[in-house]
Nucleic acid binder design. Structure first.
Lengths: 346, 346
DNA sequence: TGATTTAGGTCAAACGTTTTACCGAGCAGA
DNA sequence: TCTGCTCGGTAAAACGTTTGACCTAAATCA
């Protein structure tokens, strides 16, 4: 149905080789008239190269895999936007694999991608993936020598380039902001405790408290899982532990939304009765009635950078392993204020 | 590097044909021992079939294209989720093309997808695409006989299956709700006027007003473009036209967010001073401080259904053209109430 | 004039599969 | 002993490209 290079050859009376050479602008010496003839015929026949055939011989597909936990999550959606844009700029396209946060699906996706011969993959890892699961995954990648860029997760197991965030710094910004406002009783809803990110963010928080001579209260720290519901539940637990808490710091915006809901259900006002700080600064956070103060990540740029790293590695697999760290910044909005009855300290 | 069918053949001393037959479970008569031997060797060598090669001969890629306007927009993100999930269930994978709402990018994506031999494509069309642009696009699809499912846009030009929404019904639900609450002065922020959807929604609105003997005021209808900013601007224009408006109906939730922002900037409370109704009911609408009353679309199911339609057509291209219409429903939340000083009518 | 170069192309193998014939060995039946 | 079947398997073409080696005729050189 679709015209092939053969059709062009037949139509012009030239050889397949010549057509291929011309269409790919190889620096071969083919006369201008012949070139033109071929181009014209190609246009006329609506010729579109068959990438399957091309890839079969060239061993490259100009395709990247994107293994993502949940495309409906605005963080990942935004990340994908950056990835997609950058890939497109380099004439790569991307196969989207939504793993729904599951290990099995992640492995299945990876096999699929390997089967489709993608040139590389950008991936985010489900929290569930660690220890032996991580090992299996890592072995698979090694086995198929698939270039990978890992987002927001470093792991000595996986020989991949990474894109990370200065978690500690992010927490420091948030903590500093709250302490300066005068908050002393701060609740915190973290991510899964086995993740390195969680530890680093917690460290940043503790350090700032220590540096300011403010007591850090571990009983006000509850573990969340980055979903809205755990923000809600976490708030309840914090409030139970100490009803006089004046601020809550959630390790992502989604959980902060859960915090909002819980506070609303309890009739606790933001920021007059409770300050809330999030992390990620996803698009909708600014749309909340009390626009959320949040540690902002350059999400889209992360996506773009990830593709950049990946494409560089695809071009040269011998590159030393690289691990970029992006700097967060604090976006102060209306969800934070001095606690009732106090003024800011400085 | 990666093992091929040839390696298996060599290792087992069997022919390529036999290996292929076994691995694809063709109903050929190959002895159980041979089968087992092949399976074992395949496992041992970490064999993964090369889809490029497979596709080259079978002419099918088990891949679907997804041409979408903006993956970072929650509506499309959710749609993609449904699409991705359903595709995955059918062992198809999808190539994501974010067109950023541009015609040129749409065409480029389509060419790319044709080149990659996708079996079909699910697409949303930029508002910009109409008339001759639509013609070019349509010709292209015709030319490459690419099965297509069009979302939220019917067009006699394109010979494609469609997935649509009962726009009229959606508006009727919204209008009915507002009238019952007692609203008489209702502002409306529509989509681009050349879209069929806009006309149908407007019709639903007018009809309900007429049926209830309420005057419909065209000067309170302003055209939007489905982006937040136009919700903001539209609200300003409506308020200028008649400051005593008591409700605003936006043709999508994103524009409703713009309405929220404008009202907030002007100190107008929701719902006590202004009721707001949206359309789409995207995830975040329920997270707003005044959770948004919205005409809900089964977004994820739309995505799933689209894939269903597409896969059916891929399997049988002779199918008559199909056009599914999905029914919206009204989700009443806290952004709507009786106008000040009135009680609901019934 | 004969040898070389150059311009302009072409041949054929290779990529990793699928698939349609085809083949040979063993066995049953007559 | 021959015919014909079945069982288990194989040969080879085809899919649409790319690419390194090769070819031929004309132009250039000495």
């Amino acid at each position: 149905m679709t015209a092939t290079i053969k059709d062009i050859a037949a139509r012009t009376g030239l050889s397949i080789t010549t057509v291929s050479l011309v269409l790919n602008n190889k620096q071969s010496r083919i006369s201008p008239k012949t070139r033109q003839l071929i181009f014209d015929t190609a246009r006329e026949l609506n010729y579109i190269p068959n990438q399957m055939a091309v890839s079969l011989v060239t061993k490259e597909t100009k395709t990247l895999g994107l293994v993502i936990m949940d495309i409906a999550n605005p963080f990942f959606a935004e990340l994908s936007k950056g990835i997609s844009a950058k890939a497109s700029a380099y004439a790569f396209d991307i196969i989207l694999c939504d793993t729904g946060d599951s290990y099995e699906q992640t492995m299945r996706s990876l096999k699929l991608l390997a089967s489709k011969n993608v040139d590389g993959v950008v991936m985010t890892l489900s929290d569930e993936i660690r220890d032996e699961k991580m090992k299996v995954l890592s072995d698979f990648l090694q086995n198929h020598t698939l270039p990978v860029v890992l987002i927001e997760r470093v792991d000595r197991l996986v020989m991949a380039d990474c894109l990370n965030v200065n978690h500690e710094k992010g927490s420091r910004l948030a903590a500093d902001h709250l302490l300066k406002l005068g908050h002393r009783k701060v609740g915190c809803i973290t991510g899964p405790s086995h993740l390195e990110a969680t530890g680093r963010r917690l460290k940043g928080l503790k350090d700032v408290f220590a540096e300011n001579g403010v007591e850090f209260r571990p009983e006000l720290v509850v573990e969340g899982d980055y979903h809205i519901e755990s923000g809600y539940a976490g708030t309840e637990r914090i409030l139970t532990a100490d009803p006089s808490v004046t601020a809550i710091y959630a390790f992502n915006d989604l959980m902060a939304y859960g915090v909002y809901q819980c506070l609303k259900d309890r009739g606790i006002g933001i920021p007059d009765q409770m300050s809330v700080v999030g992390f990620d600064d996803i698009f909708f956070s600014k749309m909340l009635y009390a626009p959320l103060t949040s540690v902002a990540l350059p999400i889209r740029q992360m996506g773009e950078r990830a593709v950049q790293l990946l494409i560089e590695r695809v071009a040269n697999r011998e590159l030393p392993r690289r691990c970029d760290v992006l700097e967060p910044s604090l976006i102060v909005r209306e969800s934070t204020a001095a606690p009732r009855g106090t003024g800011p300290l400085d």
